[in-house]
Design a protein around this nucleic acid. Sequence first.
DNA 1: ACCACCCGCTTAAACGATTGGGCGCACCGC
DNA 2: GCGGTGCGCCCAATCGTTTAAGCGGGTGGT
Lengths: 343, 343
Amino acid sequence: MTQSKVTIRDVAARAGVSTTTVSHVLNDVPGKRILDSTRVRVRQVATELRYTPNRLAQGLRLQRSHTIGFLSDEIATTPFAGNMVRGAQDAAGEFDSLLLLLNSGRDEGLESKEIGALLDRQVDGIVYASMYHRVLTPPAALEASRSVLLDVRSHVPLLPSVVPDEVGGAVTAVTELLSVGHRRIGFINNVDDIPATHGRLAGYRQALTAQQLPLEPQLVIAAGHDAPSGYRAATALLARSDRPTAIFCFNDQVAMGAYQAAQQLELDIPKDLSIVGFDDLTLISEGLRPGLTTVALPHYEMGRWAIHTLMALIDAIGSVPAEQVALPCPLVRRASVSSPPRL
Amino acid sequence: MTQSKVTIRDVAARAGVSTTTVSHVLNDVPGKRILDSTRVRVRQVATELRYTPNRLAQGLRLQRSHTIGFLSDEIATTPFAGNMVRGAQDAAGEFDSLLLLLNSGRDEGLESKEIGALLDRQVDGIVYASMYHRVLTPPAALEASRSVLLDVRSHVPLLPSVVPDEVGGAVTAVTELLSVGHRRIGFINNVDDIPATHGRLAGYRQALTAQQLPLEPQLVIAAGHDAPSGYRAATALLARSDRPTAIFCFNDQVAMGAYQAAQQLELDIPKDLSIVGFDDLTLISEGLRPGLTTVALPHYEMGRWAIHTLMALIDAIGSVPAEQVALPCPLVRRASVSSPPRL
DNA sequence: ACCACCCGCTTAAACGATTGGGCGCACCGC
DNA sequence: GCGGTGCGCCCAATCGTTTAAGCGGGTGGT
């Protein structure tokens, strides 16, 4: 609020040259013949005056705002949002760009209006993000800009997209259990018709068959994605005479419910029962006793990937094929897994 | 990516008038004499061509970008960030503005560079947010812009600020316990030197003395802010012969630890022990069995407040006094509180 | 002596909006 | 017929950059 911004004209005047020259030296425009003495004088005056270009003016002229729209369906109350945004932001920083945040509320009409708001601000591109892995057909208005999908896969693959490798993550989780000797592994699944539900089930099967183990249908329960569902499903699972020695949970919240069930039945984790979750919500996975070994979602990396491919898209001469990527979900080991009892 | 943007000149040409006239009618500039017939024609052409003004150009001319910088110390992995951002965003929308997100990593030098990045983009103002309630002296670079503090109180009150009413929230929590008959109420506090630690302790005392109850020092433990700390402190508290019938926990994570301790000691919540938390992290408060009654942090409202006062600041002619506000923390009742046993 | 060329800069036109100050025309009064 | 007054609109400057094109003067070649 002190002095108003210093412009390129101020620098030019003080250095005794034209704005053109200032622009040339400050931008290191190649092929321009300017005396070295002039160059250093201009630079010196610029730093002296603390000149920094007005990005609006620059953007107007260059048709490049160094700003990227980040449109998400809803900034959910999950900590997921933060990591995706952080990844995107860090990556944007590498390109000297900032994120213009906007979240629609799933309303299709509103959504295209918001894309319009972004476009009016001349964003260089748009990241369309979801707070959980979904497949949908992205708003048509996105076509008006360069855009990439984050945690979203399109019904038709016109736009690049990045999502977590759900089945790979589940394979990792179940394999971890198998590798310490478990042979009866329960799976508490979600019921929603989303990639996570299908993918994690597929991974569960895949890991089992890789070990020539049969899939025992009575060991997998479709319950839900919250702790109460997990509690109910786990008590059901553990009530059986042939109860599993380990449970793979759809997510950490379900795992939290499973812990509660185990405690109720006086089963010790991991001595009597091993548990692995999914998502790595540290609030839960680090808060549970004992710590929950779980599979982390690569939100940060996905955010980075989105920006990087968006930038590639922007700099691309022609059109590049829309890559559809699934990033790996790493296992994070804590203390909820051990060998099964009475081996 | 289809057709490039339509400009005011396109509208002018198609409507057979000058850009001046188009601007006048589209902005409803008062005191301009323009035939109604012209007005409708211009408007019609504008919508027909789907004209929307280029915000960069507009911003350059008007010195008002309709963009607000949102600078936060770190987009933490807590779900807090989301709600503050959401509140700010919704409020910004009311003013036809968007949020330019940026997060420094606590590095003072970097911080001022980032403020510079925002300023270069001609943000109309900056909200400087923290992911947890702190008091600090905000970066001097903020002075270069209109700004307000979010979840931060300044050492010297130059900037408007909004924070949660920690002591009020604690009073609410403890009063809830008192009102159902508890007289021996434990408090597991944090150890960090932050407003939450001091404020919640003050609220605890205040609620007690309001009922003429003495503060029994052996009932308050300074432990930490995570579940393991809560577990340790709660087991210590509950091991005493004169153990409390209720525990007020610094936050929900601590409460999670207290649940674990209670379970270990085979104490039923809420029959044998009532618990109330703080923060309302739904991942925890809704996930615990039974549901945790807790005190919610007004993050969404704080976000809104920040933007609203920032806008007031921007529109203000002179300088207005920097308001220092503390917003109330509402109680959210679930199932972890009941009357004490053997009343 | 003249032309060409190169050097080191500057002039001016964009980019897409807003806005203070006209400008031409029609009409009115006398 | 003529000055005055509105009406309805437009000209041109401006915001702060970038950049194609040009310009004056010195130098070198012939």
